[in-house]
Design a protein around this nucleic acid. Sequence first.
RNA 1: GCCCGGGUGGUGGAACUGGUUUACACGGGGGACUUAAAAUCCCUGCCAGCAAUGGUUGUGGGUUCGAAUCCCACCCCGGGCACCA
Length: 816
Amino acid sequence: MLEQGSGQGKEKCYAGGEMGSYNPKEIEQKWQQIWEEKCMYRAEDGSPKPKLYVLDMFPYPSGDGLHVGHVEGYAATDIYSRYMRMKGYNVLHPMGWDAFGLPAENYAIKTGIHPKETTEKATRTFCKQIKSLGLSYDWDREIGTHTPEYYAWTQWFFLLLYKNGLAYKAKASVNWCESCKTVLANEQVVQGRCERCKSEVIQKELEQWFFKITDFTEDLVKDLDAVDWPDSTKLNQRNWIGKSEGALLKFPVSNSQFSIEVFTTRPDTLFGATYMVLSPEHAVIANLKSQVSNWEEVAGYIEATKKRTELERTKEAKEKTGVELKGIKAVNPATQEEIPVFIADYVLSHYGTGAIMAVPAHDERDFEFAKKYNLPAKQVICGNYPEPTCPVLENSYTGPGHLVGSGQFDGMASEEAKQKIAEFAGGVMKTTYKLRDWLISRQRYWGAPIPVVYDPEGNPHAVPEEHLPWMLPTDVEFKPTGTSPLAESKELAERTERIFGKGWKPEVDTMDTFVCSSWYYFRFADPRNEKEFASKETIRQWLPVDVYMGGAEHTVLHLMYARFFTKVLRKFGYVNFSEPFLMLRHQGLILAEDGRKMSKSLGNIISPDTIVNQYGADSLRLYEMFMGPLAYPKPWNTKSIAGVRRFLEKVWRARERVGESGDSGLDLILHQTIKKVGEDIERFDFNTAISQLMICVNAMEKAKAVSRESFEMFLKGTAPFAPHITEELWSELGNKESIHLQGWPAYSEELVKEKTIRLPIQVNGKVRDVLEVSPETSEEEARNLALASEKVRKWTEGKEVKQVIVVPGKLVNIVF
RNA sequence: GCCCGGGUGGUGGAACUGGUUUACACGGGGGACUUAAAAUCCCUGCCAGCAAUGGUUGUGGGUUCGAAUCCCACCCCGGGCACCA
């Protein structure tokens, strides 16, 4: 940092007193306080300005405090928000806390400290850390999902779904995490392991609450077309929903009243179906018991399957297993041939009909299974259409082609045959999805209680709305036993009996925290409303969210659930749009200096506090935005922060050169800078915007003098990125109103144009000369100038020039 | 296995719809200022060559006057899904 007062012999930097050195700590705290006092960033309800809703995925306030990864996304939306305010928008930019969740509860189990206490402490820390970054949130709208004022409405949403048949209780085989002692949604199981603690997930038969997200599958697919989201995120959602079109076909069971229905995407291969496979859980198996001659073996296999975890079933996928239902035959509805029936765990009970027709010649899995159990394969598709010959298959062929061995359909293209054969076999076309209903019950304490009570007969009843918030009891121990902690609450039990009558019992599960975060963006529109989750007027004013920023880890879970909630609200007339987030951007992961993920165990975590202390918030913001493209994963490099800090020092020093008149040579670069910075912010290309600002300040340093007007223009252009230093310099120039309330400067189309451009002259594609020419230079002129160049003539001498390519304003290429 | 995204100096990265590769930074080296140091400013990509010059955007090929950019094949890295019939 600059030393003060030591240079006696030195020239005075500028007239009018001592120049202070750049001291971020001082000015940042000062301005943060002033902004807060003035409620500078309050979003105005009912303002005539156009609205803009810019939202960050709200954080889980963990005890570890804010992470540099949070800062990346928050800085990005803050720059965007500040810029758009300067452009005249009424910006809603709120922050809140996704406060329910397991870490606080697990901590409570260890220490006995109530989650409410740790959560609120963590929230205060987060809040303080976020405020130290100078982010322009409207703190009047702060919300926390753990407060009764908030979860009353989470419970209201549950009731809305329940009353409309979209929330139901069902016994099903569900994912159970032994370590977290709770069930999990499918979306929370990653490769057979718990998304949170990575321990193995097992299947349990339990009665649980589900939300019927599958009622909206088609809209969840279709509406993706209309939103501005990263392609990869849309693709992830589409893959998760897993739409596929095929046919339902019935295979009668010989000598019985039963038939087995299958779903297939390849009805065109029906003539090649040489056996069938049922999932071990299939309901028809019990009905056929009397006809199965090897029932003991079959029952044994079914039992063994139940015991295997999802992970085992996937891990051992290479070795397929199964058992034939001896004594049972099914009839292929196309060939009328009798074919054997198997049960095997490679067929999933919850997809399609839980049964398949096996076509070993044209399906890899069936081929594998057929090979192992010595089952016949029959080729019915020939891939090299229209070639007349068909090779003998040594493997399964899964591509398209023309039909063979399929009677009257021989020669038909497989695409065309799909529907024809389905009809021929008495089947119907059908669309199937992988997406399953959302399991929302959790056997945990720190969440929103499910607002349901049971009558003495055990039938569920909704807790009437007047009893919301249905309070989370406090008289519980934090010991995970597998049954919900709420079950031991005397208060909850008594409350239930008092209100509903003797023998009534409360639901003791809480809701998945993803339920809380599925609707929070509505609450920001009207955070203190006690009568509705948000009023119609405020929803109309603010929603949908225009820009949503968050990590790519939420491409399936949170985004899918939030979209589902919005579609539910639309269906029941609460909103008139179907997608909550019009534009979505992801911040990339910030890696440690060693290129690995930051983690406590590796001890390579960088804390934003340290950086703010050492370099200042403006430097941290600028650094994270300058690291590279927002969405990329990027390694941290503390040394590089010096670069952006130096930039700020240059900005600070530039005021020494500010006078009434300035170097007019600066105009070009200044106007180019304003143009580029604005365009880059709108594209979220913050790294190149900052580099342009650096170019501009470097030019100001070289200029003899900078006019006040130019400097102010530059400060406005820098303000969204470095709000504190620009505010300080702006006020020092004598401006009374905050720089952040100024309009975004307009650049002049005239001044942005270069007076001369560099025109490279190539000979056979190699640059041999570069000419300074006017940008208006005509094709003819450029050609003549190029051919006249001495450096060029050196290369073309004695050669016959075949062609001269002139790209006006770009280059000239002389070819011989 | 399938589906995305990516491979550019020692490093992070720029490069608009095919037109001077390496903007802006970090680091290293050299220089200026200084008694000295810090700070600041200026120069500096790599390989081959005495030099002129040539080569150099993961590798190999193609299209083109011209390719980081388009096409084909391959290698490597990151992410997602994973028996979904």
